[in-house]
């Protein structure tokens, strides 16, 4: 993994202290934080400009509960994999708006690091290394895509 370029990550979060903390975490797991968006328009614009590998998206943004919509546009139009980071896990649509999964707030530093490392492996190998770590829930579509749905049959 060391020979490969770091994963580019876009942070979409309107709470600036959380965003700054997320930037630290992203760097500490060896990824690169390429940008920070606080509203949905900004998020989609940055996603299409910077073409990140992964976007961490909060549901509540500066322009309201627009994160779901932004996630859908980022996933469909910009080709980035989206991970929701939200306290509103129950309010996510059934199809996760095309996102690969969700980390529920309040998350721990460690929980986010585990989730990012896991997703990095999934993205690079196109396959899950095992069941997702505690705190990370994959969408049904991505469970199938990465072969992580054995967790349900186990």
């Amino acid at each position: 993994m060391s020979s490969e370029p770091p994963l580019n990550i876009l942070i979409v979060e309107d709470e600036v202290l959380l965003a700054v903390e997320l930037q630290f975490i992203v760097r500490e797991v060896g990824c690169r934080d390429v940008g920070l968006a606080m509203s949905s328009d900004e998020a989609v614009e940055l996603a299409s400009q910077l073409t990140p590998d992964l976007a961490l998206v909060d549901v509540h943004l500066q322009d309201g509960p627009t994160g779901v919509d932004a996630a859908r546009r980022i996933a469909c139009d910009c080709g980035a994999v989206v991970l929701f980071m939200t306290a509103n896990v129950l309010r996510l649509p059934e199809d996760f708006a095309g996102a690969c999964g969700v980390v529920g707030k309040p998350y721990s530093e460690h929980g986010v690091k585990l989730a990012l490392s896991y997703l990095e492996t999934c993205l690079r190998q196109g396959q899950a290394p095992g069941p997702p770590p505690i705190g990370l829930h994959l969408s049904p579509a991505y469970q199938r895509r990465w072969g992580a749905d054995y967790a349900m049959t186990a």
């Binding site: 709470e15 202290l17 959380l18 700054v20 903390e21 630290f24 509540h60 306290a87 509103n88 529920g104 707030k105 309040p106 998350y107 721990s108 530093e109």
Partner: peptide, 18 residues
């Protein structure tokens, strides 16, 4: 309310971590 409690706890955690 649940959402706010969670977000505020997240904020407190982030402050302490920072």
């Amino acid at each position: 309310v649940d959402h706010r409690v969670k977000n505020n706890l997240q904020l407190i955690s982030s402050l302490l971590l920072l």
